[in-house]
Amino acid sequence: MDTSATLRQALLTDREHTLTLIYHRTFPLVRRYVQQQGGSAQDAKDVFQDALVIFYEKAVAESFVLSSSVSTYLLGISRNLWRRELSRRQQLPATSLREEHTQEVAEEAEPGTDGREALAVLDYVERLGARCKDMLLAFYYFQQPLEQIAGALKYGSIRSATVQKFKCLERLRKSVRAAVAESVAH
């Protein structure tokens, strides 16, 4: 994959194989970078997946010119995405769920529950709606590949399924954060 045209052709003719090769060469670099910057292995996977989607969309465009190695280019995208994520995380209110807050939430829970259900993420997943629930459970709980999920949920492409998964995950994060912030404020 010496030139942009060769790379584009490889992605268009044998996308899965080409992306797998790129993944095996580049993901360890991204994982190391994200972990050195305070992230987890899962953070690295999320960042790299988003970077790979961005890279793929640019690489198959006729106007794309690759002036570095694929790994260097992807690492650059990943670094930018990770910096943006760190910035977003720093802007969130610093809240901790101390014992007293957990007790308050438990006291406000429905009679007959012990409070853990009030904080269960699955409750928040249920509130997202059937499509988001199906998407997130299939991907994270049942660990189904996005190709399978895209077909089962009738998305037009894997890219559409990836975008929808990201949107669902962001909605879930926002609702959990809001609930935690609300419980801490009371």
Rank of each mutant, 00 (worst) to 15 (best):
M1W: 01
D2P: 00
T3E: 09
S4Y: 05
S4P: 12
A5D: 12
T6Q: 14
R8S: 08
Q9H: 09
R15M: 09
E16V: 06
E16G: 09
H17M: 07
T20I: 03
T20K: 11
I22E: 13
H24E: 05
P28T: 06
R31I: 01
R31T: 03
Y33F: 13
V34E: 04
Q35G: 01
Q42E: 06
Q42V: 07
A44C: 03
D46A: 12
Q49F: 10
Q49V: 04
A51I: 11
V53Y: 05
F55V: 11
F55Y: 14
E57Q: 13
K58H: 15
S63E: 15
S67L: 13
S67M: 12
S68F: 02
S68N: 14
S69F: 07
S71N: 14
Y73I: 12
L74W: 07
L75C: 11
G76I: 04
I77K: 13
N80L: 10
L81Y: 09
W82K: 06
R83V: 12
L86C: 14
S87I: 05
R88L: 07
R89W: 09
Q90H: 09
Q91W: 03
Q91C: 10
L97F: 13
E99P: 03
E104M: 04
E104R: 12
A106E: 02
A106R: 11
E110V: 02
D114Q: 12
R116A: 07
R116C: 08
A120S: 10
V121G: 01
L122D: 13
D123K: 14
Y124E: 08
R127T: 02
C132Y: 00
K133C: 03
M135I: 02
Y140S: 08
F142E: 09
Q144D: 01
Q144E: 12
P145D: 14
L146N: 00
A150P: 04
A150K: 00
L153S: 00
L153H: 01
K154D: 05
S157D: 02
A161P: 05
A161I: 08
A161N: 01
V163W: 08
V163K: 10
Q164H: 15
C168F: 12
C168W: 15
C168K: 12
L172Q: 12
R173C: 02
K174V: 03
S175H: 08
S175A: 14
V176N: 12
V176A: 13
E182I: 06
A185E: 09
H186G: 14
